[in-house]
């Protein structure tokens, strides 16, 4: 009974905020489009899913989003490893300071940070101003509204999600493992690739997923910083829901994305079970 009382909030939470919305989404995906309000009629129709397979536009949007999410997560990992190692190896006093420095930008608004990047990258922005002021270029470089700008924004936004699990794992990593490797003839780079990386691989996978999953559905940053022609799944979902008002297709697309994202989670679970 006590156990039930403790777990009840968890189950209520999962029911109300996970199971119910997923159920509603699936119901809309299987509904028929209608011109009323709401713009669908409950049914057992696969028309929404059928549309996804008939037009390559949707598949392209999914693949593009997964590609950008993978690049974001990969970029985050590349930056997060040295950062997490630096924080984990710092003396405890400085460690707190470094962690605070990592988290501090996230106390400001999300849109404010995107706005700051836009201010830096746009044609009249600081970077182009500096480059032209120094005479390196005559006209502004197209920095903003590119895939690069979009990746910078995404990596910056998601970086702490990659640093924190790696930091926790590196903190737990027995420092004598690295010393033992050095003692047996391994140089620092070899120690990283033969000991540090393999031992912290589950944490690296967790860090990757923590970035990859939200990044795959990201809407705001590609919209504000990405190239206009980038049709990522987030933007396509927005258009289907709010412009085309074809909710069954939009819901089918959302369900498909959800299922696709379950695959890496399942792989991660297997890695965890093995380790």
């Amino acid at each position: 009974m006590g156990r039930l009382a403790v777990l009840a909030p968890v189950w209520v939470w999962l029911l109300v905020f996970v199971a119910a919305p997923a159920g509603i989404l699936l119901a809309i995906a299987l509904a028929e489009a209608d011109s009323g309000l709401p713009p669908f009629r409950l049914a057992w129709s696969l028309a929404g899913f059928a549309t996804l397979t008939q037009d390559a536009y949707y598949l392209d949007a999914l693949l593009a989003a997964l590609r950008i999410a993978a690049m974001t997560a990969g970029g985050c990992l590349l930056l997060a490893y040295p950062m997490a190692m630096g924080i984990a190896r710092a003396v405890p006093g400085r460690r707190v300071l470094l962690l605070a420095a990592l988290m501090l930008p996230f106390w400001t608004g999300f849109l404010l940070r995107v706005g700051a990047w836009i201010g830096l990258l746009r044609d009249e922005g600081w970077i182009n101003g500096l480059l032209m002021g120094l005479g390196i270029t005559d006209e502004p470089l197209p920095l903003l509204y590119t895939e690069g700008a979009m990746l910078i924004g995404m990596i910056h936004a998601y970086l702490p999600f990659a640093v924190l699990p790696l930091f926790a794992a590196l903190l737990r990593l027995d420092p004598t493992l690295g010393e033992a490797a050095a003692d047996l003839g391994a140089r620092p780079a070899t120690i990283f690739f033969t000991v540090t990386l393999p031992v912290t691989l589950p944490a690296a996978a967790a860090a990757f997923l923590l970035v990859f999953i939200p990044a795959a559905g990201e809407f705001v940053i590609p919209e504000l910083m990405g190239p206009p022609e980038a049709q990522l799944v987030g933007r396509v979902l927005w258009q289907e829901f709010f412009q085309n008002r074809d909710w069954p297709v939009a819901a089918a697309l959302a369900v498909t994305l959800l299922v696709l994202l379950l695959i890496p989670i399942r792989l991660f679970q297997r890695l965890e079970a093995r380790g």
Partner: peptide, 19 residues
């Protein structure tokens, strides 16, 4: 540096590579 010394050590915790 330790990797260039012809000396080896057995650690108190053994420091075996778990993977």
């Amino acid at each position: 540096p330790p990797w260039a010394r012809p000396i080896n050590m057995m650690f108190q915790s053994y420091a075996l590579f778990p993977h």
